[in-house]
Amino acid sequence: NRRVIAMPSVRKWAREKGVDIRLVQGTGKNGRVLKEDIDAFLAG
Rank of each mutant, 00 (worst) to 15 (best):
N1M: 10
N1L: 10
N1Q: 13
N1I: 13
N1S: 13
N1G: 13
R2Y: 08
R2E: 08
R2L: 11
R2W: 08
R2V: 11
R3S: 11
R3I: 13
R3H: 11
R3L: 11
R3C: 15
R3P: 11
R3M: 10
R3W: 07
R3K: 13
V4A: 06
V4E: 05
V4C: 08
V4K: 07
V4Y: 05
I5V: 12
I5L: 11
I5T: 08
I5K: 11
I5M: 08
A6R: 03
A6C: 09
A6I: 07
A6T: 06
A6P: 04
A6V: 06
A6W: 04
A6E: 03
A6N: 03
M7G: 15
M7E: 15
M7W: 15
M7F: 15
M7K: 15
M7L: 14
M7I: 10
P8V: 09
P8T: 08
P8M: 08
P8I: 10
P8C: 15
P8D: 10
P8N: 09
P8S: 10
P8E: 11
S9V: 09
S9E: 12
S9I: 08
S9Q: 10
S9G: 11
V10D: 03
V10Q: 02
V10P: 02
V10G: 02
V10S: 03
V10L: 05
V10Y: 02
V10W: 03
R11M: 09
R11I: 13
R11S: 04
R11Y: 13
R11N: 04
R11F: 12
K12A: 12
K12Y: 07
K12G: 05
K12Q: 12
W13E: 15
W13S: 15
W13G: 14
W13N: 15
A14K: 01
A14T: 01
A14G: 03
A14L: 04
R15E: 15
R15S: 13
R15A: 15
R15Y: 14
R15T: 13
R15C: 15
R15L: 14
R15M: 13
E16Y: 11
E16S: 12
E16V: 11
E16H: 09
E16P: 00
E16K: 13
E16Q: 13
E16G: 06
E16F: 12
K17H: 15
K17L: 13
K17M: 15
K17Q: 13
K17I: 10
K17C: 15
K17R: 12
K17A: 10
K17G: 04
G18L: 06
G18N: 09
G18P: 00
G18A: 05
V19C: 05
V19S: 00
V19I: 11
V19E: 01
V19Q: 00
V19G: 01
V19N: 00
V19L: 05
D20P: 06
D20E: 05
D20A: 05
D20H: 04
D20Q: 05
I21K: 00
I21S: 00
I21E: 00
I21D: 00
I21P: 03
R22C: 15
R22E: 08
R22H: 09
R22S: 10
R22A: 10
R22M: 10
L23W: 11
L23M: 13
L23P: 01
L23V: 10
L23F: 12
V24M: 04
V24A: 03
V24N: 00
V24P: 02
V24K: 00
V24R: 01
Q25Y: 11
Q25T: 14
Q25A: 12
Q25W: 11
G26M: 01
G26T: 03
G26C: 01
G26V: 02
G26K: 02
T27V: 01
T27E: 02
T27M: 04
T27W: 02
T27P: 00
T27I: 02
T27H: 06
T27D: 02
T27L: 03
G28E: 01
G28C: 02
G28P: 00
G28S: 03
G28R: 01
G28K: 02
G28D: 02
G28H: 02
K29H: 12
K29Y: 10
K29G: 08
K29F: 11
K29N: 10
N30L: 09
N30D: 12
N30C: 14
G31D: 04
G31F: 05
G31S: 05
G31K: 06
G31V: 01
G31M: 05
R32E: 15
R32A: 13
R32Y: 06
R32T: 08
V33H: 01
V33F: 01
V33K: 03
V33D: 01
V33I: 14
V33G: 00
L34Q: 08
L34P: 00
L34K: 07
L34T: 11
L34M: 09
L34D: 04
L34G: 04
K35E: 05
K35W: 07
K35G: 03
K35H: 12
K35A: 07
K35Q: 06
K35Y: 06
E36R: 14
E36D: 10
E36W: 08
E36C: 14
E36M: 10
E36P: 07
E36Y: 08
D37L: 03
D37I: 03
D37S: 01
D37R: 00
I38K: 00
I38P: 01
I38T: 00
I38W: 02
I38G: 00
I38V: 12
I38A: 01
I38Q: 01
I38Y: 00
D39S: 07
D39W: 06
D39V: 09
D39A: 07
D39Q: 08
A40Y: 09
A40C: 14
A40L: 12
A40S: 11
A40F: 10
A40T: 11
F41H: 07
F41D: 02
F41P: 01
F41I: 07
F41M: 06
L42W: 06
L42C: 07
L42R: 06
L42Y: 07
L42H: 06
L42E: 06
L42G: 04
L42I: 14
L42A: 10
L42F: 07
A43D: 11
A43V: 12
A43E: 12
A43S: 11
A43N: 12
A43G: 09
G44K: 14
G44M: 14
G44Y: 13
G44R: 14
G44V: 14
G44Q: 14
G44H: 14
